[in-house]
Design a protein around this nucleic acid. Structure first.
Lengths: 214, 214
DNA sequence: ACCTGAACACCGTTCAAGT
DNA sequence: ACCTGAACACCGTTCAAGT
């Protein structure tokens, strides 16, 4: 019953499967060895240690992600579509966001999206430092939102729950507002709404102007 | 050399100090016991287990945070000031954001800020579900940004570095843009710029209108 | 070149026993 | 009521030894 020679790819595949099923915390060197039917120490020979195993895993998954093909008639619409694509890609790999983020590989993962954003921002007429700011603001917005959203569903039982938490007295004369805040948020809607609003503000020529009301 | 009776508060204080100095990962039950000069098991008697110890720690730190007193002439300005206050408070407690986030206590921590945002959004004339959306979008934006920013400084060595990563060929006719993206981002500037842009877009009456350009 | 078991230095947690 | 040491079931990693 000797197994065929263990390869690095085999180790990575098994590790990826483990992470996919039960998350990064479930990926233990010993558990992985058991899964593969080898001694723990063999894994070390192939991948170095747990850290570099995770690094390799992230790199592999990032490369698996599809290309960014923005759709829409206007730059703003296409920026929203970039956001939507990223959200979908990342939601198909639920554990990836946190892993990428923890390893400081967010830049790496966002490179294709950044290219697309640069293109759209320039199509909207922005140039130089102002264009770079817009790209980064949108980039941070997308990653940030996905991190928050991901975390919310990982620990859905907020304590105290959002409903109990929200004190209607804070908006006594606006029951609709109180009700809306007591309801759980619809993340997809909120995501698109946020990106759209930010993109709109960043792309309008008078973004440097003072805020509208007051 | 018998120590005086151990109290729950004493345990929490020592744990808080440990986390403050070296982060949550450095908080081990055994290390904490050593710090306190007691047996590991005594700690269990006082705080249950590591999970509830962390919970108590978070709750304590959140309560330590100052009140939110928005400043500024317009609702938009005051929203930005809320964001700025939160950022400062959280940067004074570098390990808190991640801990709160991991424990699903973000709602709890953001309650005072949410109240302030509700007030400002209503002052800008928004009502009902639309006001709730605006509050939540801004809230997500702030938390998300702070998570991303915090992570960036925890692992400053992005691999590959931002500079190397950025391929100038992606913006061949805009060297200023390429240079700006090759430089590290100024997080504070980007943060304020982002919140300002989002708030502006959400507060303007015609936010439902189609994007400006195209 | 690749694999192995034994060992080291850690974890969090439980439990029976002390005072 | 509070504290203790011993023990259990885990970790990641190293190392000398095998083939």
């Amino acid at each position: 019953m000797t197994r065929s020679a263990l390869t690095r790819d085999e180790v990575l595949a098994a590790a990826a499967a483990l992470v996919k099923r039960h998350g990064p915390a479930a990926l233990t060197m010993r558990g992985l060895a058991a899964e593969l039917g080898t001694a723990v120490t063999s894994i070390y020979w192939h991948v170095g240690n747990r850290e570099s195993l995770l690094d390799a895993l992230v790199e592999r998954t990032v490369q698996d992600m599809g290309a960014i093909r923005p759709a829409g008639r206007t730059p703003a619409e296409r920026i929203v579509s970039v956001a939507r694509i990223l959200r979908r890609e990342l939601r198909e790999r639920p554990h990836l966001i946190a892993m990428v983020h923890e390893r400081g590989l967010t830049e790496r993962m966002f490179l294709p999206a950044q290219r697309a954003l640069v293109h759209e921002v320039r199509a909207a007429g922005l140039r130089g430092a102002r264009a770079a700011d817009a790209v980064r603001a949108i980039q941070f917005q997308i990653v940030g939102f996905l991190l928050v959203e991901r975390n919310r569903e990982r620990s859905p039982a907020q304590s105290p729950a959002e409903g109990e938490l929200w004190d209607p007295r804070a908006a006594p004369d606006d029951p609709a507002l109180a009700r809306a805040l007591a309801r759980p948020a619809d993340p997809e809607r909120l995501f698109l709404l946020s990106v759209r609003a930010l993109a709109q503000a960043l792309l309008t020529p008078d973004a440097a102007a003072p805020p509208a009301s007051g």
